[in-house]
């Protein structure tokens, strides 16, 4: 029931958002694409020119690239598995009638509000540090050698830190989803003699499908870009052991000052993100009521 004039007004109201997002996407992307075919090193600004696909070839031939790709997928996959499995378990626990629900939730959600550099620095210094960390104290208490978390197991350590940050988000969504589950259905199943496992498998889990999809989709968007945690703890090391694709591109740009190569990496990251996004949007589209 909208008139011609309100339609016109509506277009004008949407226009600024569309315009700034278009500019924000297209201008930098076009520049990155342009640089990715150029020789462009900040340390030798005189030597420039077109180099075709050389920057891309360098990436694909670099063993670091494949390691970074594996690390990126491991980080996303590892954190997703941990947060979804633990998140469901903790949500089931919090959904029980327990004392102090409100305060419990406040404690559980807290890590999500801790900014990445602080989260990383708490774990790096207060827990994982081989001399002064709590884990080292614990190991010595048992007469064992302290584990060199960030030196010997950099990727699992980073995955652990990021999972700690995102576990509250997953838990909160699962708790919200559980609240809409009808208790009659569960009680009926219980009276019919369905075991706890079967009740979970055939009633609770199907009910959570939508929430699980949403958690996976949203977290993937954020996890593909994880940066602050690695920058604060391992700086991608030791060597390149904990370098992800975003961090590798960052190193090419900032440390090596090779704009051409970093730009090629950026375009590769865009292509990768598009592949992931394609599947995400297909899955997410069904669950969003736009």
């Amino acid at each position: 029931m909208s008139t011609q004039s309100t339609r016109m007004a509506a277009r004008f109201m949407v226009a600024p958002s569309v315009l700034v997002l278009l500019v924000w996407m297209i201008v930098p992307l076009a520049m990155t694409a342009y640089f990715s075919f150029r020789l462009y090193r900040l340390l030798s600004p005189d030597r420039t020119g077109w180099v075709g696909f050389n920057n891309y070839v360098w990436f694909f031939n670099s063993p670091d690239f494949w390691l970074a790709l594996t690390n990126t997928l491991m980080l996303v996959g590892g954190v997703l598995v941990i947060t979804v499995v633990l998140g469901i378990l903790i949500a089931l626990l919090l959904d029980q009638p327990v004392k102090g629900q409100g305060l419990l939730r406040i404690l559980v959600i807290a890590p999500f509000f801790v900014m990445p550099p602080v989260a990383a620095s708490i774990w790096e210094n207060l827990f994982m540090h081989p001399q002064n960390g709590l884990f080292a104290a614990l190991a010595r208490g048992f007469g064992a050698q302290p584990i060199l978390f960030l030196e010997s197991y950099p990727m699992p350590s980073v995955i652990g830190i990021v999972a700690w940050e995102w576990l509250p988000f997953a838990t909160l969504i699962f708790v919200t989803a559980l609240q809409s589950l009808s208790s009659e259905q569960l009680e009926a199943a219980e009276m019919d003699g369905a075991s706890a496992f079967n009740r979970f498998r055939y009633i609770i889990l199907p009910h959570l499908t939508r929430a699980i999809t949403v958690v996976i989709l949203i977290q993937t968007i954020f996890l593909l870009g994880i940066f602050g945690e690695i920058f604060t703890t391992t700086q991608g090391g030791p060597g390149s052991a904990s370098t992800t694709l975003p961090y590798m591109i960052f190193k090419q740009a900032i440390a090596a000052k090779d704009i051409g190569r970093a730009a090629a990496g950026g375009i590769i990251a865009v292509i990768l993100a598009n592949i992931v996004a394609y599947f995400l949007m297909r899955g997410l589209g069904r669950h969003l009521d736009a």
Binding site: V14, P28, T32, I249, F250, A273, L280, M281, G285
Partner: peptide, 24 residues
């Protein structure tokens, strides 16, 4: 479609646009 497109801009990796933004 417009809403979905807006959401998709969130999926553009920040590193991919870091260099131009830095230079600009």
């Amino acid at each position: 479609d417009l809403l979905m497109w807006m959401l998709s801009t969130k999926m553009m990796p920040a590193v991919a646009v870091m260099i131009p933004i830095y230079l600009l």
